[in-house]
Design a protein around this nucleic acid. Structure first.
Lengths: 358, 358
DNA sequence: CAAGGAACTGACAACGTTGTCTAGGGCCAT
DNA sequence: ATGGCCCTAGACAACGTTGTCAGTTCCTTG
């Protein structure tokens, strides 16, 4: 009479185990056993249940399951921005690990906003994720205290947690990378090296600057504030800064770019300033970038390479160790960086008079 | 006596609303009202409850909430690979939309594997996501039927669902883009244009090839299978293919690369084959890439640009329309592509004898 | 043949929350 | 003074699952 071809009750919404049980003529618990492949169900019964499951299109409700069992088999990942290649590589590594362990993954980008980091983390906690991997934007992680109390595991990646927050941490050796990159330029004869970093509040930016200063000091070179820019990589601002640097009375002969974004924007700025088609050699400046990027090989850009996938993998490994009961003291791992010479960082200083030739 | 400084019972695990209620001397339901900012609670009482919440570090259990309310305020996103720039831009757009609507986001990469796409989607469904955005890897979406029956909303992005699956779809105009790119090369005098695509089973790859053929036909040019490669972008394989193409008796004077990956790998292959530092001009070949990529501007690579962020935004908009009750017939949106001339696609055909000059 | 066990199945409570309904008390208008 | 209403608060069931425990059947074994 109705227009529903199904046999029996027309239920709106999803069938439950109860519906399946009724359809198969067994008890609820038996369905549960079949769904979870628990032993102790007669093959014939199991088949009947299985048939009912397929006929009704039954799908277990994991919210109920989670509520009952207390574990969610999911983890949360908070990064700075998925659209950034560094973080998307990291994401992918975490995703792989999660999949491998049978976990589902919540993802969110903080956009370098501490409040947003906190909201995301707490939302994940409300969903009762078993663990968290956090690239922190903020420096106060007091809000995590009740979560730790409740047994949640967290691993910090790329940047350490705020003071007073004890948790596993995986970092790159940012200061070491800054030293290496700077020392490389010094070894090629440069004495005036500009550092184009990100906001000084960002841990990695500050560390890399520290490494830069260490290398200068080790070589007996003075630290000149006029050669350092620490600000978010805005294209227009960077072009202006570079123009100012290059037309100064004692301009730099080499640049160290503080991260992937600044490297790329530096290349753009150089290209637009010098009009050179081959930005890699623009202005005869030597250039070392921090963080490798796609096509750096073709552009011949020397970089201090990090390994975001390894960072993600390591963080995930630590987390899953914790989730499987590991109670060791928290560890802090620093991953080495690797200098990849490709030409732009091996150019000797160009005497001032040759500059305009481009 | 114990070593726990807390007053009252020492509970392991998280405090519940019941615990908060006991601590504040009110009923469970009153706590619920406070937590959810429901009206009808005296300010003084609310303060008492709030204090208890903070003292105990209470955090609502969303699994229970979801179970009770039936809606999860979360959506699932299945893409091909987060680490790919195209999909990470798309992800970010979806993430923004989710945040804006107060939804949480599950993410997973299918790796071009239909079974994995299915597993991810079903896992998300088991978590009772309210909606799905899917970049399908497979071509059979029958497994979604029970989910649709249960009221889940799904939007397909970048590629259409398999036959028989009626759902909102947002695509790029792949055939149109293929036509545009090919016509552009033809307009610059090319008659022998190679097409370097991806696996023919991938919808976008097949569509772009179709556009290429349409443009050839429109210009009265023959379709030469020898100029077409349809396979996943493996670097070694691509180098071999390019070497074969370029040393053939009647080699192409221009290349149309089928997607971002193939464009980049083509550049690498050309650079390694010709030894040219400036890969953009390697071998004097004209080149148009499908899908824009970072630094294409600096390299001077002409592309048929898609807009992955817009794709994600549009898909999310459609999904949230559905989630807010929209019952219109399903729509299929095609987003226009945009040709961005940058030099590599505007080179005229180079006579064969000049080739080796590189 | 009785007793014991193995294999299978089911009844029931509990997970932590929210929706519905009811109850008490204070205040206003009649 | 009394009925009625609003404001506040709580009791209780229900969401769909899983863990515990108890029951039934049937087979083995002494």
């Amino acid at each position: 009479m109705g227009d529903d071809p199904c046999v029996g009750e027309t239920r709106r919404g999803r069938p439950t185990m109860n519906d399946v049980a009724a359809a198969a003529g067994v008890a609820l618990k038996t369905v549960s056993r079949v769904v979870n492949s628990e032993p102790g169900v007669n093959a014939a019964t199991a088949n009947r249940v299985q048939a009912a499951i397929e006929r009704l299109g039954y799908r277990r409700n994991d919210s109920a399951r989670i509520l009952r069992r207390g574990r969610t088999a999911s983890i949360g990942l908070v990064i700075e921005d998925v659209a950034d290649a560094f973080y998307s590589s990291l994401s992918r590594a975490v995703e792989d690990a999660a999949l491998h362990h049978g976990y589902l993954l919540f993802t969110g980008s903080s956009r370098e906003d501490a409040a947003r980091e906190r909201d995301l983390v707490l939302a994940f906690c409300a969903r009762r994720v078993d663990g968290l991997i956090i690239v922190p934007a903020g420096s106060d992680h007091g809000y995590l205290a009740p979560e730790f109390e409740a047994g949640i595991k967290a691993v910090f990646a790329d940047r350490p947690p705020g003071a007073g927050c004890e948790a596993d941490t995986v970092l790159c050796d940012n200061a070491g990378g800054g030293r290496t990159g700077t020392a490389h330029l010094i070894a090629h004869g440069h004495r005036r090296i500009a550092f184009l970093g990100d906001s000084p509040g960002i841990f990695t930016a500050a560390e890399r600057l520290r490494g830069y200063r260490q290398a200068l000091a080790a070589a007996g070179l003075p630290y000149d504030e006029g050669l350092v820019v620490m600000a978010p990589p805005d294209p227009a601002r960077m072009r202006a800064d570079l123009a100012r640097l290059l037309t100064a009375s004692d301009p730099p002969t080499a640049l160290l770019a503080g991260n992937g974004r600044t490297t790329v924007e530096t290349l753009r700025a150089l290209a637009s300033l010098t009009g050179a088609a081959d930005a890699g050699a623009a202005g005869g400046l030597a250039l070392v970038g921090f963080d490798d990027f796609e096509l750096a090989d073709l552009l011949g850009i020397t970089v201090v390479a990090q390994d975001p996938a390894r960072l993600g993998r390591t963080a995930a490994d630590l987390l899953f160790m914790r989730l499987s009961g590991d109670e060791e003291p928290t560890s802090r791992i620093e991953l080495a960086t690797r200098l990849v010479p490709r030409g732009s960082g091996e150019r000797p200083p160009l005497p001032l008079r040759d500059r305009t030739a481009g």
